[in-house]
Design a protein around this nucleic acid. Structure first.
Lengths: 359, 359
DNA sequence: GGCAGAGATGAATCAATTA
DNA sequence: GTAATTGATTCATCTCTGC
């Protein structure tokens, strides 16, 4: 795994190339497969200009069954290539996302969320025959129901979202203007280029710096560009050499962020563990000291081994808190207070002192 | 078809009852099937209270295959029962919506849109392990790709949406408070009651007054209540007699809107535009409610799509205000009042409420 | 009566590590 | 493998209680 080549664009059929990659070698997959749009004839705007639709050969499949078979193949290979803490992201619209989602479930993946990309500037429905199709859907899935660990930077996203949990609906503008890559003829280089902001959020949410991100439908390389910018490694697969060329050039021009700028809000789960007894060892608390519950009406005495005793009851800070509150569980660190000259203070503050001293 | 019994709740297994209905006898189907949630053990909130989860037997299936088989059966019957200009609406979450969507496509239906119900007040993810699951998905489909005619009140929806095309993402609050039906024990009568505003919009979009709406998973009858209110006929199928009893009582209490209030905007050119449909949708105003001008000597009635009518005149809140005042323009939001126990109050206050609820 | 604060609750696939 | 231990974790809204 250490000799896996990354930051590389592999040109070829996505299933064939996927087969050449080793088992459990990547941390995340982002896939933006053909949507199998099944368009009818040309569509004209009210001013009679023609809508530049996705009518490329790579988006044509003979039937739902053919599309399903194709998707199940690449999804199977992606599952093999993902390591056991990895996850996959797939994007689609109502044309294909139900096929994708059902395949993902059938292959043993476990869906974690579906995410809505709300487009702030969608193309209107010119004929007035349906609702403006103003969103696309992403599916985020782990490798299996049994997989308990997957990267999710919960606290980073919460901070991003003004200290409220990030929701399953995200709003971004379409990829237009400067960001939209044009060919020499001034026309868009790829019909379905995704906004880099979307990939930025996906990578921020579900990878860590240095992780390897695989994109089996690389196109003009939005995933690679966002990965490089965010200090993630990437592997792209693309069949069309023209798209690949655009992607290579684009990614080359990306300047990665400085490592210190890649720091995100850390999870408390990841912080070093401190035993309550260490506070006694460090002399921050002494055997015999009295701790109080938040409202102050219950108390307990600290014993030399870091256990607490209150009347006939005793146990760890957590266990005794739960017992006294008659609750199924209790976080003793946030529950217990100790007396200071300025009133009661949480023992969690003492833990922070110990942690600071550990660095 | 003329002797089809409507405004009726049929108690029994949904597939068996569906089989008893004649071909091509209904204009729309709205289906809120079991989601097959596959929950694990209990979930505790941070305050150690238990989440009241959907753990009913009716939501349990032995496998995806069993769930698929069930859905394909009722979806097949629904397609048979729909007339040739009919359409179907199905609601689900990421647990089941991919199965539903794939089945809908496989059975020959033609997807017209997928619609996102963005919840303004979703339940958080208490453990911080995923994104807040803040939406559900509706699928709207015609009977076949070849079907060219289906009811879609484009202009009414556009009027509803402040003269902009209605998009595929809709924001509504959960069904709580007064609207949420409680049993004698004070607990919710049904675990998954949908907000009536959601049904209001669906029915307004895809049916006409007098149309027959079939709901094969009637539950506590939100579809029937919204249908009756909007002057649509309904047929409900529900297996559980207890739910059925609640539904019957609920629908009996609904007062239908007067037929003249169910008029919606016709062709774009023929009628002026409207702008405040969300208030009607939210139940802050009802079709038939009377609005007054600042001095109180002029009045107008609210229609289901948010347009106003006053004598021979009708139009948006802005246009009708201008007409009645013989002014070149008028801000309807500050012009119109509605009656409260404490006298007249500006509709702009209601807009503020809707806005607050949507953030 | 009005307002502040506490409590309840909604379709939820909801922990990780050590013994 | 299972069992016990540690300890991390919530948003918007509506109802109820108390002053």
């Amino acid at each position: 795994m250490t000799d896996l080549k990354t930051d590389i664009l592999l040109i070829g059929d996505c299933i064939e190339v996927l087969r050449s990659l080793p088992d459990k070698s990547v941390d995340m997959v982002f896939a933006d497969p053909p949507y199998n749009l099944q368009l009818g004839g040309d569509l004209l705007r009210p001013d009679n200009s023609k809508v530049d639709a996705v009518d490329d050969e790579w988006d044509k499949f003979s039937s739902f069954a053919a599309y399903d078979a194709f998707c199940r193949e690449w999804l199977t290979e992606c599952r093999r290539v993902l390591n056991d803490e990895g996850s996959i992201w797939v994007i689609g619209s109502y044309h294909n996302v139900f096929r994708l989602g059902a395949a993902i479930q059938d292959l043993g993946y476990w869906v974690l969320n579906d995410i809505i990309w709300r487009k702030s500037n969608p193309m209107p429905n010119f004929k007035g025959t349906r609702f403006t199709n103003a969103h696309e859907t992403l599916i985020w899935a782990a490798k299996s129901r049994e997989q308990k660990r997957y990267t999710f930077n919960y606290d980073a996203l919460k901070a991003f979202n003004e200290d409220t949990q990030m929701r399953s609906d995200w709003t971004f503008a379409l990829c237009t203007g400067e960001e939209r890559i044009k060919g020499e003829d001034g026309k868009k280089a790829h019909p379905t280029q995704k906004p880099e902001a979307l990939l930025h959020r996906v990578l921020l949410a579900a990878t860590r710096p240095g992780d390897v991100v695989l994109d089996p439908f690389f196109g003009t390389g939005t995933t690679g560009a966002a990965a490089k910018r965010l200090g993630r490694r990437w592997i792209g697969i693309e069949r069309d050499p023209d798209y690949a060329k655009v992607a290579e050039k684009r990614i080359k021009a990306v300047r990665p962020a400085a490592p210190e700028d890649l720091m995100v809000m850390g999870s408390k789960k990841a912080e070093p563990k401190v035993a309550f007894g260490a506070l006694v060892e460090a002399g921050l608390l002494s055997p015999g000291d009295v701790l109080y519950c938040p409202k102050g009406e219950r108390e307990a005495r600290v014993r030399a081994d870091g256990s607490l005793v209150s009347g006939a009851l005793s146990g760890s800070i957590h266990k005794l808190g739960a017992l006294l509150e008659n609750a199924p569980a209790c976080n003793g660190w946030t529950y217990w207070r100790f007396r200071t000259d300025n009133g009661l203070r949480s023992i969690d503050a003492l833990r922070a002192e110990v942690r600071a001293g550990m660095q």
